[in-house]
Amino acid sequence: MPEIKNIINGCLKGSRRDQELLYRRYSPRLYAVCLQYSDNDEEARDVLQEGFIKIFTNLSNFKHEGSFEGWMRRIIVNTALERYRSRNRLYMVEDIDRIPEPFVDPGNEDYSGLEATDLMDIIRMLPPKYRMVFNLFALEGYSHKEISKMINISEGTSKSNLARARIILQRRVEAFTGIKKKVLNG
């Protein structure tokens, strides 16, 4: 399997073969990220296409100093955020800096029965504004301050959206697990 550095150099020289090689190698993982941020498959495909075009056109800016996959992932996430921002031009986010968090039993639930496809389905059921914050905070590791700038919301809104997302996810995971157990146990 060719080294990624060689593939990148080939892409920079305009090699069609290397471009396709790079796409084939990374598109499955990046498409999963697109699905995570999109409402439907069609939108995810658009984000993937737009993101990959940016990746190829900005490839010369990659300095080989960090993870190439991480660099591509950031481009894909930013592309998804741009689409989200442009789609949500009218911001009427309620000020819910301090919402009461319902009690959720921490317990020691075993979620090992959940597969990645299940988790993806659950995450895509979230309302976009909660999903965005949860993805950026829990999966990408951004702070609330960064998230607030990325999607033009206040830090308080980011925190409250995250809290709501967690509650919804917790309930759905439990429900999912319960249903699965029932199905498996007859």
């Binding site: 498409y31 999963a32 495909r45 296409q49 829990a138």
Partner: peptide, 24 residues
């Protein structure tokens, strides 16, 4: 709950539709 999703989706891969590359 964060870890459930972070770990569960860490290496998750989905094959994109074939027409995606044709547009890129």
């Amino acid at each position: 709950i964060d870890l459930v999703f972070r770990n569960g989706l860490k290496n998750y891969e989905v094959l994109p539709p074939p027409e995606a590359w044709n547009s890129i």
